[in-house]
Amino acid sequence: MGGFLDYSPGNSFLHRLNPIVKIFLSLMICVSCFITDSPFFCIAIIFLNIVMAASAGILPRALAMLRTLIKFCTFLFLIQVFFIRDGTVLFSLPFDIYVTDKGVMFSLMMAFRLVGATLPLALMLSITKMNDLSNVLVGTLGMPYKYAFSLTTAIRFIPVFTAEMAGIMEAQTARGVAFDTKNIFRKIGLIFPLCVPLLITSVRKIEGAAISAELRGFNCRKRDSGYKSYPFRAADIGIILFAFALAAAGAFSPF
């Protein structure tokens, strides 16, 4: 069980890394995807993401995400590829629509980058406890606790709201709103009014969460209140170096 972004417990090498290092690694993977010009490098990065997910025991989730991302990116690719007009024409269709080599290359890179850059952040968030994350943001990076808490709470609420939205869709389908229509534009039009109940519920839940946090001493918290410590170990240093190396490889990849 466990939905998108829910914490997936474990004790793998990646789980044990310092939360800061996990975030740093995933950010550097994103960066390297964007600075490289090589599609092969991007493919390698996507492959690396999958290997990392497998080592942390969340392969099924990673593959599910990959599948969704590929669907989305295929859609983007198809839109994009017809809009780029310069370069050598590879083949043409009626109505002055044609596809060029540059268009294919550009759209392909865009799709690869999107996949390569989206996966690592989501994966890292799945194997990091939100408390650990906010603790290091406060303790190591010196972020004020209020911001760190808001950030992690926002992330924590994503699955809550996803479930709420699913419940709302269910209730509306049951009363006869035709969400099961095949027409995508009609469907979007139907979903729009549902923002009202979602908003109301969200406001109520957030208000409740705020009161609960207040009652549990949220306002008393100081920078060094965290109980757990997050030392940097050799493995952490190694991963930081690896992350830099990855970004450098992205910048200077020869292909």
Binding site: A171, A174, F179, T201
Partner: peptide
């Protein structure tokens, strides 16, 4: 058949009214 077709003669009351009310 689609659920929206079945809904024409079926009512479903959930535990949480806030998931239905949207007007």
């Amino acid at each position: 058949v689609r659920t929206s077709r079945i809904a024409k003669f079926t009512g479903f009351l959930f535990q949480n009214p806030d998931r239905q009310i949207c007007k």
